[in-house]
Nucleic acid binder design. Structure first.
Lengths: 217, 217
DNA sequence: TTCTTAATTTAGACAAATCTAAAAATAATT
DNA sequence: AATTATTTTTAGATTTGTCTAAATTAAGAA
C-alpha cells in the first residue's frame, strides 16, 4: 500500500508521461507544488519500491506496477467526478479539487459499487476516459465532427487538415486539442454545425467540421 | 483547518466525553491505537489551538470550538454511512472503516449536496442521529417498545424496570443499551413482539416489551 | 500516614515528507 | 572545446506525529 503522497507522485508522473518520456524532476516539482530536492527524495523511495525506473539525472518512468497503481487512482478520480456531476449536481469545473481528495479513499468494494451505481460510465465530465478495474481503457475511435448528430458529445483529438490558416482559425475559435464539444444542431440548409464549447454557443461551417476529428463519448 | 490526525483526536474525545468527563489520556490512547505519551503531545497541540481544555493529569474536555469541529466530523461520517448503505448497498456492518476515511474529505458543498441527495436523513444505518450543519441534533423521545408498530425501528436507550432478574434476562437476549431493533410483528394473540436484532429474529413477551425504552427513528 | 500501584507527563529519539543552500552533472552557447 | 546556464542531486535542518524509557503525579491499600 502506498501513502497519500506517494499516490500523488505516481499520478502526476503518469500524467506527465503522456507529454514527455522520461519525466523530469522539475516538471514533477511544478505540478506537485514542491521543490526539486523533495522530488528527488521521493523518487528514490518509489524506485526502491519498484514503482518507477530511475536513473540519476535522467528522469523517471513508471514500472508496470507503478503504472497500474497510477491508473487505478485516475479511475477513482474520474468515477468520483461523474458522481459529483451526475448525482450531486456539481458543475464540471467544480469537481476537480474534491475528486483530488476522494481519489485516495482505500476501498475496492467502494469503487466497484460506485461504478455500478453510476452505470459503468466510460468517460468523466470532461470527456476523459475511465479505465476499468484492470487498468484498460475502452478503445476509442475518431469520427469527423461533421458526422455527429444533435446531442452527440466528444473531445477534439485531432485534425485532418494541417495548413497554418486552418489551425489558426481553430485556435481563434477556441477549438483546440482536448476541448470538449457538444453538437446542438446541424443546420439543414448549409450543413454548418452549432456547437456548445465551454458553455458558449458557436457555429462552424461544414468545411471546418469535416476536418476536425472527435472521439465520441 | 485541522489535520487528519487532529480531526481524529477531536472525534474520539467527543465520543469518549459521552462516557466520562473529563476524558483520560489512556482512554484516548486505547481508542486511537497509540501510546499515552503521543496523546499527551497531541492534547497540548489541541489545547494551544483552543480546541480542548487541558489541565495536566486531569484529562481533557472539548471547548465549544472543538465540539463543533467534532460534531461536524460525526455528521460527515454518518451521512457517508447512509450513502454507502442506501445507495451503494453496503451492509450496515461494512460501512464503518470506509466512512472513517470519507469523514475527512474537506468540502462543505459536498456535504450539503450529499445531505440533499440522501433526502436529509435524521439517523445513520446504526440508528445514531445525524446532526445538522449547525451541530444541532434533532430532539428524540423515548417510547415503550410495546407501543411500536410493524416496521418501526429504533435504538434501546433505557429501561423502566431496574431489577436484577429483568436486566439479566435482557442481557441474555442481547437486548443491551444502544442496540438497534426493528419490529417485525406484534402478535395479536398475546401482544408479544417479534423483533429483528442484528439480523436475527427474536420474540419477547409483552411484559418485557413494556419495560424497554426505544428512541424511534 | 506511608507504601504501592496506576496513570500521566517529560525527555530524547525516530520516520515521513519537506525545505534551503551548496555541490555535481547535464545541456546550451559562444 | 570551453564557458555559461540549467537541472538535478546531496547534505543537513525542520515539521508532524509517533515511540521508548524514565520521571512525576495521583490514587488506592495497608
Amino acid at each position: 500500500m502506498q501513502s497519500y503522497t506517494e499516490e500523488n507522485y505516481l499520478k502526476v508522473i503518469y500524467h506527465l508521461s503522456e507529454i514527455s518520456h522520461p519525466v523530469q524532476t522539475n516538471a514533477i516539482a511544478d505540478r506537485i507544488q514542491t521543490k526539486a530536492a523533495s522530488v528527488t527524495d521521493m523518487i528514490k523511495k518509489l524506485s526502491e519500491k519498484e514503482l518507477v525506473h530511475y536513473v540519476k539525472y535522467q528522469g523517471v518512468t513508471l514500472t508496470e506496477k507503478g503504472k497500474l497503481t497510477a491508473i487505478n487512482i485516475v479511475r477513482k478520480h474520474r468515477l468520483w467526478e461523474v458522481f459529483l456531476v451526475d448525482k450531486l449536481n456539481f458543475k464540471w469545473d467544480e469537481v476537480h479539487e474534491v475528486a483530488e481528495e476522494l481519489e485516495h479513499i482505500q476501498s475496492n468494494l467502494l469503487i466497484e459499487r460506485l461504478d455500478e451505481f453510476l452505470d459503468y460510465p466510460k468517460v468523466d465530465p470532461h470527456g476523459d476516459p475511465i479505465p476499468d478495474k484492470n487498468g484498460n481503457f475502452a478503445e476509442m475511435t475518431f469520427v469527423k465532427l461533421s458526422k455527429l448528430k444533435n446531442g452527440d458529445k466528444g473531445n477534439i483529438t485531432g485534425v485532418s487538415e494541417h495548413s497554418s490558416p486552418f489551425l489558426k482559425h481553430l485556435e481563434k475559435l477556441g477549438l483546440t486539442l482536448g476541448k470538449r464539444v457538444e453538437v446542438i444542431d446541424v443546420v439543414e440548409f448549409d450543413g454548418s454545425v452549432e456547437l456548445l464549447l465551454e458553455q458558449e454557443k458557436l457555429n462552424i461551417s461544414r468545411e471546418v467540421a469535416k476536418h476536425i476529428l472527435i472521439t465520441k463519448n
